[in-house]
Design a protein around this nucleic acid. Structure first.
Length: 276
DNA sequence: AATGGCGCCTGAACGC
DNA sequence: TGCGTTCAGGCGCCAT
């Protein structure tokens, strides 16, 4: 489910309300991608700080008696979502983690269980640091210039779509937004990364940014069940130009949208508008 | 160092 | 209705 906009929408929907809450208890359901790595009882009595996002990971810092007490690194995987409510009803079969606090219950629901919640002593200590180390630049980081983006693309021979998805140059664009950004930039997803000219690389970076901001403004995409922590749907999916539209005429040129498979993932593009 | 493929897991949609 | 197949928003890990 969640690409950067969905994760950011989720973050914004609960960060302020949970800030300063006291952890009362933790409930674990079925195992997620990794074990929590900390006895749940050691989290009770901790205070939650200001949540943040890095790539598609969320970080929930904790303090114990005003001293840093590590934090929780969370990932929503393919099908995860977070809800923050005053009362969390009885846990369903896909509710795998409850952080019960003085301000409400933060609940991770994830049918496929590719998501994760793990404790780390700090954001810059293992295991959090190890996972975050491989991430590329934040898409809106001004330090990511067109020049740097182009230079990084030059070092890769894989198709540009795969390079965007890998997230080690720029994070945040998953399967939907990588397809949409490439459409916006007029670039064929099969183009070798190192073959993109500087102007086209700059255009692509602008398109990644525009696509992610538009999705953010629309509350993300709700394909199956994405909701923010208030239970709100996103609406971006209705404005997708190519994703999930194989066979439909392109809204710009009328050519039927094509679906190809790259790295075991579906790629959607318009053969008329997108060039190698 | 970069690359492509695998596997983790469940549920929905589809074809027969 | 039942059954098998395919597909799904991610990503760490492995061998090459």
């Amino acid at each position: 489910m969640p690409e950067l906009p969905e994760v950011e929408v989720t973050l914004r929907s609960f960060a302020e309300r949970i800030d300063g809450a006291e952890v009362l208890s933790v409930r674990l359901g079925a195992p997620l991608r990794w074990p929590l790595g900390r006895a749940p009882r050691l989290l009770t009595g901790c205070r939650v700080g200001r949540a943040s996002r890095r790539g598609k990971y969320l970080w929930l810092p904790l303090t114990q008696a005003s001293r840093p007490a590590g934090g929780l690194l969370m990932h929503l995987g393919m099908s995860g979502s977070l809800a923050f409510n005053h009362q969390a009803g009885a846990a369903g079969k896909h509710d795998h983690f409850d952080l019960v606090t003085s301000r409400g219950v933060l609940r991770l629901t994830d049918p496929r269980r590719f998501g994760a919640v793990l404790w780390s002593a700090a954001l810059d200590a293992a295991p959090a640091a190890t996972l975050l180390a491989r991430l590329g630049a934040e898409p809106f980081d001004p330090a990511l210039t067109g020049e740097r983006f182009h230079a990084a693309l030059k070092r890769r021979r894989s198709p540009i779509k795969a390079v965007l998805l890998a997230g080690d140059i720029v994070v945040g664009a998953g399967n939907i937004y990588a397809c949409e950004a490439l459409f916006d930039a007029g670039i064929d997803p099969r183009t070798r990364s190192d073959r993109l000219s500087r102007p086209r690389a700059e255009r692509l970076l602008a398109s990644v940014r525009a696509t992610l901001s538009q999705a953010l403004a629309l509350g993300g995409s709700t394909l199956r069940d994405f909701r923010d922590a208030h239970g709100m749907d996103g609406s971006y999916q209705a404005s997708a130009r190519v994703y999930g539209r194989a066979g439909e005429p392109c809204g710009r040129c009328g050519t039927p949208v094509r679906r190809v498979v790259q790295g075991q993932r579906s790629t959607f593009f318009c053969p008329g508008c997108q060039r190698r």
